[in-house]
Design a protein around this nucleic acid. Structure first.
Ligand code: FES
Ligand code: FES
Lengths: 168, 168
DNA sequence: AGGATACTGGACTAAGATAGTCCCATATAG
DNA sequence: CTATATGGGACTATCTTAGTCCAGTATCCT
């Protein structure tokens, strides 16, 4: 459905939470080393604790988040939010993203022979991925700002949504 | 997963098949009125007949395909392929597409209150939709050509895929 | 050392979505 | 009237998703 799973949505919320905390939402002090515990994140995001734990585990296994075990341990972003893209986030939670099955593993598709689209979806997928590469976690943590992505569709006349109305 | 279902993929293949047939792949004669029966499409796309029948029914209920009942009946595109967009195709098979649940019905989301992303995915979704509005069925039926979509990511330096290598 | 804290890994289940098939009714051509 | 072909829907096996829970391990603090 061109729809990401709830877990990915939650996961993004968690990442944004971590980004905001590191920025110093707590004491107004910027501290990239600030560790958030799972329960910390759960209450901050209002998600169920077990779910948060599960997702943080996944994140910790990725290169996006680092973890410290033991008492006073917790999670923190491993990199600067500006260097973490939406595409990477999707990769972590949903595996290498591909819009169709055939585009997953280098076009290994049983239907490829008779497929009239000639890998059209693959190309669309690549384009979308390119767009997703533009969005960073830092962008996600700054709701008021518009995304560069809307520029992309601005060059068309066939489009439906408003091209950034007077809002900034 | 940012992944469309198999049925949508099949459905696209069917649409492309109809487009090609109307273009006159059969006798070399262009005939927008040419009707394809379900079994016709099934053998042409190498998909299972029952599945093709199911999908053609869905398509016929949409505004993309028209049908003629009875003997010598069949299906044909209702509009010019150049006016049918990928976004419309996805709409038909997957309903109004939205990348997250909260973006489905005008941000009616239980988590919206505590959501730190502030509808970020919604905006991403809108951008992707805009990109999908650019692709037409006519594009899909012309594999050799590149899509305008790749231009979109071309303005970035963070991107991964090649910007249309010597292929045309 | 010993207890408290907190991450790690994986198993497990209920609910939902998906893919695919089949049946019967209806409409049209000949 | 009969063969052809769509229309609408029911139905089920399978897969995926969402959510929970438990046993293990590392670290801090007393
Ligand atoms: S369906 Fe797989 S390549 Fe087209
Ligand atoms: S999770 Fe629904 S608005 Fe953010």
């Amino acid at each position: 459905m061109l729809r990401i799973s709830k877990l990915t949505d939650y996961g993004t919320m968690i990442l944004v939470h971590l980004a905001v905390q590191a920025r110093g939402a707590k004491d107004g002090v910027v501290d990239p080393e600030h560790l958030c515990s799972a329960s910390d994140v759960a209450s901050g995001t209002r998600l169920a604790l077990p779910t948060v734990q599960k997702l943080l585990k996944v994140l910790a296994r990725s290169e996006l988040v680092r973890s410290v075990r033991g008492a006073e341990g917790g999670y923190a972003l491993a990199r600067n939010p500006a260097t973490i893209t939406a595409a990477e986030i999707l990769d972590v939670f949903e595996g290498p993203l591909s819009i169709t099955e055939c585009s997953t593993a280098d076009s290994r598709c049983e239907l490829e022979d008779g497929c009239p689209t000639g890998g059209a979806w693959q190309k669309i997928n690549r384009g979308i991925r390119g767009a997703l590469d533009e969005i960073t976690l830092a962008d996600l943590a700054h709701p008021p700002r518009e995304f560069p992505l809307v520029d992309l569709s601005g060059r068309s006349s066939r489009l439906r949504h408003r091209p950034t109305p007077g809002q900034g």
